[in-house]
């Protein structure tokens, strides 16, 4: 049981990060960015290029990856999404699939992506044994980073006008404009931030997996999407909770049941269950309850 909790937490935090990126974009643009995972992989290639290929410190590679991913996200919004304001949101989602394909091709062509790659970990060391699981310093760091990110986002989104504008952008863009918040900037911000958060997730999970190739973080995206859906798709708290839940369910199911594909099956099962029982996500009920209590 202890092992399930530790591993579930370690993976769940990463899924949470991807889920946050998905939710941010969804809240800002009302669409799903299917390239979210691959942007994380793209960031890994950038970081690898700085750290492994050019022997620079991890932090430089990480910052470069975050900046480039944010620029990529914002750039995609500026070049494509902003021109599709009137378009069906499904069309925008399809455009992100184009970005996904482009990124894979780009990684192969310009980052020698055909080969498998290995990143250095941000912190060296073997880690600590918790319930028989060796938890690495990187995994501890990812927990702390996720916590800091959650707190930072909460502050930004709930305590600033710009943040409130982000939260309201998809639901009532007219009102957002009326209160003087530039919608274009909000949209670019969420796409950029969402991309950067994905890179953060990829940077933290890669040392656990050990190697990466093009498409590496796309599976994380699927789990992140499941987490976002479980959490309600519009709720950042839900994204975190959903990520952790998916992590625990995945590891727990793999421990209890012994059939191939049990991990993905369990994730899809939970997602379907939530959609059937609480279509608006787990946190939607939580908010309602909280309001009722107030």
């Amino acid at each position: 049981m202890g092992q399930v909790l530790v591993l579930g937490l370690v993976y769940g935090v990463i899924y949470s990060l991807f889920a946050v990126g998905i939710v941010l974009v969804y809240r800002g643009s009302g669409t799903i960015n299917f390239a979210q995972g691959e942007i994380g992989t793209f960031g890994l290639f950038v970081a690898w290029w700085f750290t492994t290929a050019h022997h620079l410190p991890w932090i430089i590679g990480a910052v470069a990856a975050l900046v480039m991913a944010a620029a990529l996200g914002a750039g995609f919004e500026w070049a494509i999404v902003s021109h599709m304001v009137e378009a069906n949101r499904v069309s925008v989602a399809v455009a992100t699939i184009g970005l996904l394909a482009f990124l894979v091709a780009f990684e192969v062509r310009f980052f020698e992506g055909g080969n498998i790659r290995k990143m250095v970990a941000p912190i060296r060391g073997t880690g600590w044994s918790v319930f028989g699981v060796v938890v690495s310093p990187t995994q501890i760091l990812s927990l702390l980073a996720a916590g800091a990110l959650a707190a930072g986002l909460a502050l930004l989104l709930k305590k600033t006008d710009f943040g409130l504008g982000v939260l309201a952008a998809a639901q009532d863009p007219v009102a957002v404009r009326l209160v003087g918040i530039p919608l274009a900037r909000v949209s670019a911000f969420v796409w950029g931030l969402g991309a950067a958060v994905s890179v953060l997730g990829a940077l933290f999970i890669e040392p656990t997996i050990g190697v990466f190739t093009p498409g590496f973080a796309s599976e994380m995206f699927i789990k992140g999407l499941a987490a976002a859906v479980v959490g309600g798709l519009t709720s950042l708290e839900g994204a975190f909770v959903g990520g952790l839940l998916i992590g625990f369910v995945e590891v727990g199911a793999n421990r209890v049941f012994d059939f191939p594909g049990v991990k993905m099956f369990s994730i899809l099962f939970v997602m379907l269950l939530v959609l059937l029982v609480k279509p608006d996500g787990l946190m939607e009920g939580f908010k309602f309850r909280r309001r009722a209590l107030a």
Partner: peptide, 9 residues
């Protein structure tokens, strides 16, 4: 190095 390792892959 755009080609070499991609080629290897």
């Amino acid at each position: 190095r755009t080609n070499r390792r991609g080629r290897v892959r």
